[in-house]
Amino acid sequence: MKAVIPAAGFGTRFLPATKSQPKEMLPVYDKPTIQYVVEEAVASGIDDILIITGRGKRSIEDHFDKSVELEVTLENSDKYDRLKQVRDITGLADICYVRQKDQRGLGDAISCAEKHVGDDAFAVLLGDSITKGPKPCTKQLMEVYEKYDSSVISLEAVAQDKIERYGIIDGTQVEPNIYQINQLVEKPPANEAPSNLAIMGRYVLTSDIFDKLDETEAGVGGEIQLTDALSKLDSIYGFTFEGKTYDIGNRFEWLKTSIEFAMDDEESKNDLIRFMKSYVD
Results as ranks from 00 to 15, higher is better:
G243R: 04
G167F: 04
E266L: 15
E186Q: 12
N191L: 12
D265H: 12
I130Q: 02
I168N: 04
F10I: 13
K31G: 04
S129Q: 07
R58D: 15
P16K: 02
S129E: 11
P176G: 06
L50G: 00
L50A: 01
R104P: 00
I236D: 02
K256V: 12
E156V: 08
Y97T: 04
L213S: 01
K244N: 13
A229H: 03
L155F: 06
I95P: 02
A113D: 08
Q100T: 04
T53W: 04
L272R: 10
T90D: 07
K23S: 12
K187I: 11
C112Q: 14
A121M: 02
E39H: 09
G118I: 09
S207Y: 07
G221S: 06
A113L: 05
L233V: 07
P194E: 08
K31L: 10
I163S: 05
L226I: 05
K101W: 12
N196K: 10
I259F: 09
A8Y: 08
P22G: 03
I52K: 03
K132Q: 08
I178G: 02
I181T: 11
I236C: 02
K84V: 14
T216C: 03
N250W: 15
K57I: 05
I181A: 02
A7D: 05
Q160T: 11
S20H: 14
A7R: 01
Q140E: 03
G238Y: 01
E40S: 07
G249C: 07
P134E: 13
E223Y: 06
N250K: 09
D170Q: 13
A113Y: 04
G222K: 06
Q35R: 08
L184Q: 05
I51P: 03
V68M: 12
L213G: 03
F64W: 04
T18N: 05
S111R: 10
R104D: 10
A109M: 11
E61P: 08
Q160P: 11
F252M: 15
S235M: 08
S67K: 15
T206D: 04
T245F: 06
K132G: 06
D108I: 05
V152D: 00
E156H: 08
D30H: 09
S258L: 09
V152Q: 00
Q85Y: 12
S278R: 15
L233G: 02
L92S: 08
M276N: 07
T53I: 14
Y145T: 00
Y80D: 12
K269M: 14
N270I: 13
A7L: 10
D48W: 07
L184D: 02
D128N: 09
S235V: 10
K84C: 06
Q103W: 06
S150H: 05
P189W: 05
T90R: 13
T73E: 14
S44P: 02
N191Q: 15
I110D: 01
I95A: 01
V144P: 00
A193Q: 10
D94L: 08
S258D: 10
L255Q: 13
V117E: 01
Q140T: 05
D65L: 08
S20Q: 15
E242T: 14
